[in-house]
């Protein structure tokens, strides 16, 4: 599917690799000659905070942030963060592609909030006219040999969804060039596992 403009949010928790994933998509878009903006929203902490990268590809793109209800895809490395961003940004008919594995907020642990079930998240996004696809990317990353490749599993799934205006080959190449050299093999396995998980 090719479109004039793509607005993609990559959401997760600090430390999961959402920013790296968004830069990979951004670099791949530039390599295919497209105009790109990647805006990041994260807290002051190194780890543990809610993080969202706004990836915007296309000619008429000026601002680094996606407008309300302006995202075609929310790629979530963590389900609650997927919901948080889908409610605000996912367009009617958009796709929430999420990892199933939760990273519990401290608010939930100390009993001050409740973590929504995956079913509740699915129901909520569907009510908004969105589609939800969930894969256990964390387990797939472990299967690939390195749990930290989870972000690349999700990129593989994103490529597999066919909704990215970037060729799978370019994306794979950019993954290879933007991960630590020692982890290239694991990352490529992760990409493939994500890619085929969504094709199923």
């Amino acid at each position: 599917m090719k479109m004039a403009e793509l607005n993609l949010i990559i959401a997760g928790v600090g430390g999961q690799g959402s920013i790296r994933a968004s830069h990979i998509v951004g670099i791949a878009a530039i390599q295919e000659g497209m105009r790109t903006r990647v805006g990041e929203t994260f807290g002051s902490a190194m780890r543990g905070g809610a993080v969202a990268s706004h990836v915007r590809i296309g000619k008429g793109v000026f601002a680094p942030l996606i407008a309300k209800d302006g995202a075609e895809i929310v790629l979530a490395l963590e389900p609650l963060e997927g919901l948080r961003n889908a409610v605000k940004f996912l367009d009617k008919g958009g796709l929430l592609l999420t990892n199933t594995r939760a990273w519990m907020p401290v608010d939930v642990n100390i009993g001050r909030a409740e973590y929504p079930s995956l079913e509740a998240i699915k129901g909520a996004v569907e009510k908004l006219g969105g589609e939800v696809v969930a894969i256990d990317a964390t387990s797939l990353a472990q299967q690939a040999g390195n749990v930290r490749t989870m972000n690349v599993v999700m990129l593989g799934a994103l490529a597999g969804s066919g909704k990215l205006p970037i060729s799978v080959e370019t994306l794979k190449e950019v993954v290879q060039e933007n991960v630590p050299p020692k982890t290239i093999a694991a990352n490529l396995r992760a990409f493939e596992l994500g890619f085929s998980a969504i094709k199923k």
Partner: peptide, 24 residues
Amino acid sequence: DRPRELIKGEIKNLVAPRSSTLCA
């Protein structure tokens, strides 16, 4: 899209806050 905004209002209660923490 007013109806959609109303649904959003309900869904927002599902979105648990995530306080910033020190690392493990």
